[in-house]
Amino acid sequence: MTASGPPERRAGEGRQDDSPLIRAFFEKRENLILFLAARTRSMAAAEDLVQDLYLRLATQTPAAEVKSPVALLYRMAANLLVDQVRSDQRSSRRSAQWRIETRASLGGEDVVDETPADEALIARERVRQLAAAVADLPPQMGRAFRLHKLEGRSQAETAEAMGVSRKMVEAHIQAAVRQLSKRLRS
């Protein structure tokens, strides 16, 4: 891997700090974003999380020498996933609900003024495509995808609701992602 350039989205991040951990961070930044992206709503959200991780690195005084900087980076990234991402997603999903509800209560009139009508049309068509692709999944796979992905349950909760093992849920999700990516072009 070649070292990547300075972080893209934000200016003002110095590289004068030459600690091995910071160096490893810049080298692995893109991979860390991809790692976190599996649990965020967008690439930008994953980049924000990686930015948080950088701030944590840059402000913490490292305890002695770090044996494996890359392992530590992934450990920190995983910790972000365990506690933060889930709850953030939950709250953002709640605010999405709120938006939907507000809109519905205004008598079906589209009040989202920043979205031009044709874009809204395209978005609606895309939602229909997404839904159709889910509806075409084999029943158990579709059910697992729905419970876990769309309703936001954990794999364990999905397994419980379906009466199957967690491993089975993961296998369904894997197959669903593969099938959906094949069918839908983003």
């Binding site: 992206a37 599996a38 965020t40 709503r41 967008s42 690439m43 997603q89 999903r93 999405a96 609900q97 939907i100 895309r126 939602v127 229909r128 997404l130 839904a131 889910v134 509806a135 729905r146 992905k149 769309l150 309703e151 936001g152 992602v177 959906l180 990516s181 839908l184 983003s186």
Partner: peptide
């Protein structure tokens, strides 16, 4: 990208299903 698209549109897709 597909996964995130579903995440961002979860409510709308559910409503459609």
């Amino acid at each position: 990208a597909i996964w995130q698209e579903f995440e961002a549109n979860a409510e709308a897709v559910l409503a459609e299903l």
